[in-house]
């Protein structure tokens, strides 16, 4: 219907003179269409050049061996087979590390929910407190990692001192950043750095739950646990879902704090996926761009699948 209207306007002279009013309407519609495309043109061109095109390339390069200097050589599923069968490549190991790091996501959500629940119960000073908790989330990762590297320092760092003062006797072979404790320390730092974002979202979501619901539940004799399950959880479920989704995708792609914390010294215990892929760009392990593309594509697909599962599962527990 819309298109026929446009055809009519295009063949203006040949048609049996349409009423002047209709003609004007058509010209206005066409004008609106043209301006619509003009307005979205820059964003769409940028999208095609810098997102869609690389996306297509990533699929193409994943099946090739490519060193930037000679043309890419098609090798079928060779790269993917190597990822899963190689003993020297740490990509699978980095996925395992990322999975461990993801423990911080539900922990962080729980922590920010608890603090948010405390904050909605006070009136004066709650804004100032929220502002303080939010500070780390806007700070650059390099600076924050420097600070935590110093806090985690053996013997001299504040955390070491704190534990000694509590009566723990830390031996010389203990370290917050040694093989055994590295991931736990990174999760700990992540909890501190990430609290503010979840807190803000939970706070506004908790505030939007009507007080009347709790009063009515209290009249019916509901305990705190029932209230939480029947009123609070459904109320905050969209925000909780959002935090878990973005949190998982974010922690699988965490890079800066790992690279900076270790001083760019990679090991089986510290390697993370994006860091490992980045190594192939620097040429440290040879210029294997096809192989690196395959790893990027694989990680991306894993995250898309995880997100899709979360989306499907959310149908059962998220109440919008």
């Amino acid at each position: 219907m819309q298109t026929t209207a446009e055809v009519v306007t295009l063949g203006e002279g040949a048609e049996t003179a349409p009423s002047p009013k209709k003609n004007k309407m058509n010209r206005r519609r066409r004008n609106e269409c043209i301006w619509g495309y003009v307005f979205i043109a820059p964003l769409c061109i940028g999208f095609l050049l810098f997102t869609a095109f690389p996306l297509v390339l990533s699929i193409g390069y994943s099946f090739t061996e490519y060193d930037l200097f000679s043309p890419p050589k098609f090798i079928g599923f060779g790269n993917f087979i190597e990822i899963f069968s190689s003993n020297t490549d740490w990509f699978l190991r980095s996925l395992l590390n990322a999975l461990v790091f993801t423990i911080g996501v539900p922990l962080g959500a729980l922590l920010s929910l608890v603090v948010a629940a405390m904050l909605v119960n006070i009136s004066r000073g709650s804004t100032a407190l929220r502002m303080i908790f939010y500070i780390p989330t806007i700070c650059g990762s390099v600076a924050l990692t420097f600070i935590w590297q110093w806090m985690f320092a053996s013997h001299y760092g504040i955390l070491w001192e704190f534990l000694e003062n509590l009566g723990f006797h830390l031996t010389d072979d203990f370290g917050f950043l040694d093989e055994e404790h590295f991931m736990a320390s990174m999760i700990f730092m992540g909890l501190w750095a990430g609290l503010g974002g979840g807190l803000l979202l939970f706070y506004s979501s908790l505030q939007s739950i009507s007080r009347d619901l709790y009063d009515a539940a209290a009249l019916d004799g509901a305990g705190p646990l029932t209230k939480f399950r029947a009123i609070t959880l459904p109320g905050i479920s969209p925000v909780l879902f959002y935090i878990l989704l973005t949190g998982v995708v974010g922690s699988f792609q965490a890079f800066t704090q790992f690279q900076v914390m270790t001083g760019d010294i990679i090991s089986e215990h510290t390697v993370m996926p994006v860091w490992w892929i980045y190594r192939y760009i620097t040429g440290e392990w040879g210029y294997r761009y096809g192989f690196a593309s395959a790893m990027g594509l694989l990680l991306g697909l894993i995250l898309i699948i995880v997100s899709a599962i979360q989306f499907i599962a959310s149908k059962y527990w998220v109440k919008y």
Partner: peptide, 22 residues
């Protein structure tokens, strides 16, 4: 466009690099 917001950035990291370099 909306769907690409959810696209993990790591997918396009290497191809973008190749694109800009080559």
């Amino acid at each position: 466009l909306l769907a690409t917001i959810l696209l993990p950035g790591v997918i396009t990291m290497i191809p973008s690099y190749i694109l800009f370099a080559n």
